[in-house]
Amino acid sequence: MESSTSYASIFRPDLFLGQVALVTGGGTGIGRAIAHELAALGATVVVAARREEPLVETAAEIAAAGGSADHAQVDVRDHESVETAVAGVVERHGRIDLLVNNAGGQFPSPAERISPNGWRTVVDRNLTGTFLVTRAVFNASMGVHGGAVCSVIADMWNGFPQMAHTGAARAGVENLTKTLGVEWGPRGVRVNAVAPGLIYSSGMDTYDEAVRDGVAATASRIPAGRIGTESETSAAVVFLLSPAAAYITGETLKVDGGSSLAKVPLVPLEAHDAISPFDGFHLAREVPDSWGGGRSRTDRSAYRP
């Protein structure tokens, strides 16, 4: 791909001129792309996360491209940290017009191996953190001035094998989005979400080789025929934050190339015959083993009264 000195957004350059945008998890991955695009469209962007180094780097990149950027350290799991960070942003910039809840994180694991602490950590990062930041921004600014919120969740519509913790948390954010869309409409605040499918970003580096291989193998089974890009996710977020979506609230936009229509696990499940079939029809054809026929269906005595 050809390099450029600024973000090549599909939207007009001054779309968010004079507005202030807070992007959690804005130092890396999808959040970094969103921060760059919002800045390219005229917003003053504040990137926020726990680690300061990526935030400083991203803010410097935005400034070098001619945009306006600031950063704020925050632990979205801690309400005091959130309140302090949001208050600081409002003090420095006067208000917050746009909020992108992108901070989160998870790790692949069979559900039975997720420790209570591991479960709490993922739920706190993805669900509790989204609530704490959104509430703080509403109370500090949007409740008075209005605004638009967009949360980045995930493709968890048919369950999330190997990711039970984040699937549950993201589903919670999707429901929270609906609730806040109703409650805050009279205050001029729209609340929406974007659910990316498999996206090629730096976030992939956090997973081991088996998961990355699984993702690569899955790509050919996505109706779009490929994995998505950070830019495609960012464009969906920008649309929902923009005036073009003025009549949209409480909704979640899937950006997954159709993968949610035919969900497959990131890590393939083992073949097994652990769940015995029921076959009470005495004239039924037996399912061939190659079709997953499994255990024999010849003994029907257990089904007779």
Rank of each mutant, 00 (worst) to 15 (best):
A168G: 15
A210N: 13
G225R: 02
E230D: 14
Y247I: 08
G185C: 09
G228T: 07
G185K: 10
D289F: 02
A244E: 15
I248C: 05
P243W: 08
E183K: 08
G257D: 03
A271F: 03
V182Q: 10
L253N: 08
R190V: 10
P268A: 06
P288Q: 00
V267M: 03
R170P: 03
S276L: 14
G280N: 03
P186G: 06
A210Q: 15
V215T: 11
Y247H: 13
L266G: 12
G257Q: 03
A246H: 07
P277D: 11
A195W: 05
Y247N: 07
W184F: 05
T252V: 14
V264S: 07
F281V: 14
I275W: 01
A193S: 15
G214E: 06
S202W: 00
D205Y: 02
A168I: 05
L261G: 15
D205C: 01
G257S: 00
V189M: 04
P243M: 08
A224P: 03
K178M: 13
D273K: 07
E230I: 03
V211L: 14
G181F: 05
R226L: 01
S234R: 02
E209H: 10
L176I: 07
G203E: 04
V194Y: 10
I199N: 02
L283T: 13
S231C: 00
N192L: 00
F278H: 12
S234E: 07
S220C: 08
V255G: 11
G257P: 05
S276Y: 10
G214N: 09
E232H: 04
T179N: 09
V173R: 07
A235E: 09
E270C: 05
P186N: 06
I222C: 00
P223Q: 02
K254H: 13
V287H: 01
E230M: 10
S234H: 03
T177G: 10
D289V: 13
T252R: 09
T252K: 05
G258N: 08
V191W: 02
A168Q: 11
H282R: 10
G214I: 13
Y207C: 07
N175M: 14
P223Y: 02
G250T: 10
P186L: 04
S234C: 05
G181L: 03
F239K: 02
V194W: 12
R170H: 12
G214H: 06
I222D: 06
S220F: 00
A210H: 13
